[in-house]
């Protein structure tokens, strides 16, 4: 099945954010199973604009610790758990903003503050989106999965005439 414009935007955004600010070259992985392993860090971020929707990001615990340490310029062993969550929240914020800037938007978008999810919330989340794009990558010894769900169909700026 060919990649949709949103999936393409998601893949490019994940790659760009991880390379530029985390110095990681993500390697494409097949989509992960529905249930995340124990200790996975999951973040949810909703956004309003054209389109509106939710981005969910999940990262394996060891990979999360490593990328957080790299981002902050600290040693992984010195890092408090709370700071790891903060970095993953910012990672979600940047990926979401980057995707929405690539996807066609006639007006500016607004991102809500990202929030950490508990494992039960992650598993219980409803699947009611009109449009859903998923991208998983291997980073370090773990996996990062970004899921973008929108309530309206979208198209990229490439499909509209340039301003």
């Amino acid at each position: 099945m060919p990649e949709t414009p949103v999936q393409c935007a998601l893949r490019e955004s994940v790659g760009e954010v991880l390379e530029k600010m985390f110095f990681v070259e993500p390697l494409d992985e097949p989509p992960v199973a529905a249930d995340p392993p124990d200790g996975e860090i999951a973040v949810k971020l909703s956004f309003e604009g054209s389109p509106s929707g939710v981005l969910t990001l999940s990262v394996s615990p060891d990979a999360a610790r490593q990328v957080a340490a790299d981002f902050l310029g600290e040693e992984p062993s010195d890092l408090a758990a709370g700071r790891i969550g903060e970095v993953v929240c910012e990672l979600a914020n940047m990926i979401c903003g980057s995707v929405l800037s690539r996807v066609e938007s006639s007006s500016t978008f607004r991102l809500a503050a990202p929030s950490l999810l508990m494992a039960e919330e992650w598993r219980r989340r409803p699947e009611t989106a009109d449009c859903r794009a998923v991208h998983s990558v291997a980073i370090g010894d773990g996996i990062l999965t970004a899921t973008l769900e929108t309530r309206d169909p979208v198209c990229t700026s490439a499909e509209k005439s340039v301003f």
Binding site: F23, D70, G73
Partner: peptide, 19 residues
Amino acid sequence: FEIGKRNYLAMRKILWKSG
């Protein structure tokens, strides 16, 4: 393939962490 990019990212990471 891509070893060049991986070298570059590794260098950037080490320099960033070294301040």
